[in-house]
Design a binder for these strands. Structure first.
Lengths: 153, 153
DNA sequence: ATAATATTGTTGTAAATGCAACACATAAAA
DNA sequence: TTTTATGTGTTGCATTTACAACAATATTAT
């Protein structure tokens, strides 16, 4: 019937499908283990710890959520007492930076340990080599797409 | 500081980042070219044409959106006159099936042509081999994750 | 036969998301 | 100096999404 390649066979569409499985797995694991934070909050904390003195917009660019969304995630993390925010300057501009509190570090460490233990119980689907190749190729794809897609962050 | 692998280095998280670029590219292209349908509606039409006589829930499972969401997408496609729905039976159960109307086929063809032309103007980021490997590995990952993740569809 | 269970689709609702508009401060240009 | 442009963060709103509850029907168990 349709000889041309279908959109649903395209790399972009299949990437979306695959990401949905990954995301669902993350959400379900976090809910199942009764974490006091969501996947997104956990990811944000991870990025903050990796980038000392990061400001909100830089964080937004790294987690690929817009500024509004990023601000809201930080609001809830602050309400929970896992981060503290303060005003600083970057290039002589006022920015809001944040640090992980001791409470936050404790929760993060605990979550990481439980997560690692739980994930190790999931059977290995891909070989280490396949995983590495996959990550490298996706990184290359992201680098290329950065030129084509405007992310409005 | 943190010697253990970070969550943001994980395959799952990087998949989410990469998928966001892909999704944004799709949305932006569709908006830029003034299509009368969204990416999701286009994908749904593509899947419907690939699977003749598919019912709503089967469609939902393929596009990985829940039944509610799938029903709503079909509502808008029906309102636009691009599909027609009718009641049928599957395993002696009442189900709603759908067909693409002539109008729908026309729009889909037009969108496909414009899309192909536009996408060909985007510089090649990955080689054909890289793309194939990537798609195959993602498919393998999805197959494996199907055992671990419940999709509630 | 009756009750319990399962399948399909819809409705309602809360949460997440994206985007535009705004406020504020600084840098650059006139 | 005054105006214009840029960078940062917040607010509001519309859309998307996930999830639970429900209705209707069919299957299975008791």
């Amino acid at each position: 019937m349709y000889k041309t390649k279908h959109f649903t066979d395209s790399l972009f569409y299949q990437m979306e499908l695959t990401a949905k499985y990954c995301r669902s797995l993350g959400v379900q694991v976090f809910a199942k283990l009764n974490f006091p934070i969501t996947v997104d909050e956990y990811s944000a904390m991870d990025v903050i710890m990796l980038h000392d003195g990061i400001c909100q917009r830089e964080l937004a660019k790294l987690i690929l959520k817009d500024r509004a969304n990023t601000g809201r995630i930080l609001n809830t993390l602050e309400e929970k007492g896992y981060i503290e925010r303060f005003v600083d300057t970057k290039n002589k501009r006022l920015v809001r930076k944040m640090i992980i509190t001791d409470d936050g570090k404790k929760i993060f460490k605990k979550a990481s340990d439980i997560l690692k233990e739980h994930l190790s119980s999931i059977p290995k689907i891909l070989t280490d080599e396949e995983k590495e190749t996959l990550k490298n190729t996706m990184k290359k794809l992201r680098e290329g797409l950065k030129q084509e897609v405007e992310m409005k962050i």
